[in-house]
Amino acid sequence: MAELMYWQGILRAHDEEMARDPLVFAMGEDIGVAGGTYKATSGLFAKYGEQRVVDTPISENSYTGIGVGAAMVGARPIVEIMSVNFAWLAMDQLMNNAAKIHYMSGGRIRCPFVMRVPGGTAHQLGAQHSARMEKVFMGISGLRVVTPATPRDAYGLLKSAVRSDDPVVIIEHESMYNLKGEVPDEEFFTPLEGVEIMRPGKDVSIFAYNISVHWALDAAKKLASEYGIDAEVIDLRALKPLDRAGIAASVRKTHHAIIVEEDEAPVGVGSEVMAIINEECFFDLDAAPVRVHALDIPIPYNHRLEKAAIPNAGDVIAAVRKMFGR
């Protein structure tokens, strides 16, 4: 088993799918000659040419729409939006066309469209380059939304997304492209639905996704060694549709729930998971569920203010300790 970086996992998935199917093609800003802002498409331009590795002008809504149109007639586009913040400009084509075409055509037109978006807060990029848009994407009927926390899933989710006949948004993370992890050498596919237990535990369920999985895993280590609390870390991974049964199964086991999100709290992953817990397993709870989340503010530039706006492993530990009174 090879150790790959997150970007290398994405690149490998592109390469395998493009080699297999001549109708798979990639589009986006700087993905071709320049090799991609995060290198996730590097080398593909030389290998597959400008028709299949398309450098686009800075026209997010329309190149997204071109991808959607191509998908509607049988091609398999992988559209990269350079930064999730720019995806706001593509929302019309994504929401009104990609997400709705299968339903409003009575199932007659499929849209196997993939959008990859580097998201999250990196370092001091300011309010317009630090958006976390999962709450927006996961609120759109007809989309699938997945988010890899590891190089393995960065590879496996893109593989599955390209093969799916539904439109899929993959939320990556700008701070994770150089993250290393083991990726099996043989081809595999990460499911587009369902949670994954990253660390089994019996005392508290910590629900996380994308970068917050790593905060949760760090917190779980310390909670075990220093406070004797055995945390179960669940990678939600698929944000739309959310795995109601998987969430409830963990809570039924631990009777405690913490949700960790890099996004602001209102109308987000945390509030949605909390609602599912209430609906599915309220009487299994021994304590009120708690959300660990970003402040509800535009992300500031100053490094101290930025750090204060975003949660970390320490905040997860503090929330669990408070819940257990330790």
Binding site: F25, R52, G65, A75
Partner: peptide, 25 residues
Amino acid sequence: FMGGYALVGGPFPLAAGFAKAIQLR
């Protein structure tokens, strides 16, 4: 016949996308 869309101007890129798929094929 690929539709019927309510958002004014929305079909422009879709039409170009059909053409992109034709070009690839």
